[in-house]
Design a binder for these strands. Structure first.
Lengths: 211, 211
DNA sequence: TGTACATCAGTGAACGCGCGTTCACTGATGTAC
DNA sequence: TGTACATCAGTGAACGCGCGTTCACTGATGTAC
């Protein structure tokens, strides 16, 4: 790799880092090509040697955010596999609370993951897709332990539902609007929600109730 | 009321209606003062006789959306008060599904309710606040029947949690992204979620699990 | 190692577009007598 | 009812701002011999 190519990689990294800081501080609308150029010390036009356009930059930051979220959830799982049902429920609770912690500590980056819209054509690159699916592995293993009799499809659906539900509590709660759970109660309510669903499953539901 | 004042009210109504159509079709970013002026047949500047600024317009549309959502949920409740626990659970399910139906049929208007950010100072007018709280009345009555022993504060918290959870499933599901529940399964999963939580409550939880 | 040339990153002024809001002016409507 | 005046909605050109992206040019870096 030539010195030029190395420099370009360094510049690109610096650019993404600067974009990440900008989004973290001001949201995606606060991303200005001129600010970034000034921050990493290059000319305005040079940005377009490093990156296709501003959308690519937001996507790259999103990928990093997803990576950091993944790491935060993986840290919870680092304690080893849960062995019994009780431990599996506790693990699901811990993951949900870690998810809340990440969202609370990275509000704008986290929100950008869900709210940012690309231009019309809206092609989400393959790597971004793969990133998203990775997150589910943290949920699926403990969930399978809670619901041993379910098949993969039902489990996958339940996993998405549980994730979405927790996401909803976090998203509305962190908005500080009136329909949400007050911030101070979010962790408790997430725990209650996850435990209630698990208890409901134990009480005979299989995630797909009869009509 | 003079003819002039009447005309102004009519114009204001037409303006809000035009704004509503524009948001429904193109999202809040598609709201253009010039388009609206053309649509209601007045000069650009005349808009500012009807409305303070564009933010007020979005807020007014939001208020209308909230009103229509309220009506949609009220239609579910029109069948009369649920009498027993079973009926109360069914009512909660029906309301949640109606919520999904509204969101699905009014995706951009619904999303604007949650994603639109006012300028920095961010004053949400009192009437908007009151609107939001009204929605909860549809949930609270059946919920009280499901959980008769809970006090008002715990009930309120559980109501917010349940609403947020359903909201999350709807919001991520309608995004058509990979982490969400597939559209075709949303109703079923909402029903499962609500029933599971209610079943969990029956199984002994009170919404505030012990540490 | 040295020289000549080619490549391509770096530059920043300029382009192009979009758009909310203002403002001096006009003319219709309302009011007072 | 009629007249004179005042008010204020209506007008649309112009203001002001922001900003992503391009492009002709330059100079440093890499390559071939």
């Amino acid at each position: 790799m030539t010195a030029t190519a190395q420099r370009r990689d360094r510049q690109r990294t610096a650019l993404v880092a600067a974009a990440e800081r900008a989004i973290a501080e001001k949201g995606p609308a606060g991303l200005k090509a001129r600010d970034l150029a000034a921050e990493i010390g290059c000319a305005l036009g040079a940005i377009y040697n490093l990156v296709q356009d501003m959308d690519e930059l937001v996507l790259r930051v999103g990928s990093r955010t997803l990576g950091r979220l993944d790491a935060a959830l993986a840290a919870v799982a680092a304690e080893g596999e849960p062995r019994d049902r009780e431990a599996a429920v506790a693990r699901l609770v811990a993951i949900a609370i870690a998810y809340h912690g990440f969202a609370r500590d990275n509000p704008r980056l986290w929100r950008t993951l869900f709210e940012y819209r690309l231009a019309e054509d809206a092609e989400i690159p393959d790597w971004a897709v793969a990133d998203q699916l990775q997150l589910f592995r943290h949920i699926m293993a403990p969930l399978a332990l809670v619901l041993p009799q379910a098949d993969a499809a039902a489990l996958s659906l339940l996993g998405r539902t549980l994730f979405s539900a927790v996401h909803g509590v976090v998203a509305l709660g962190l908005e500080d609007r009136l329909v949400g759970v007050p911030r101070a109660d979010i962790d408790r309510q997430i725990e209650a929600l996850v435990r209630l669903v698990c208890a409901g499953l134990a009480a005979g539901g299989d995630g797909t109730p009869l009509p």
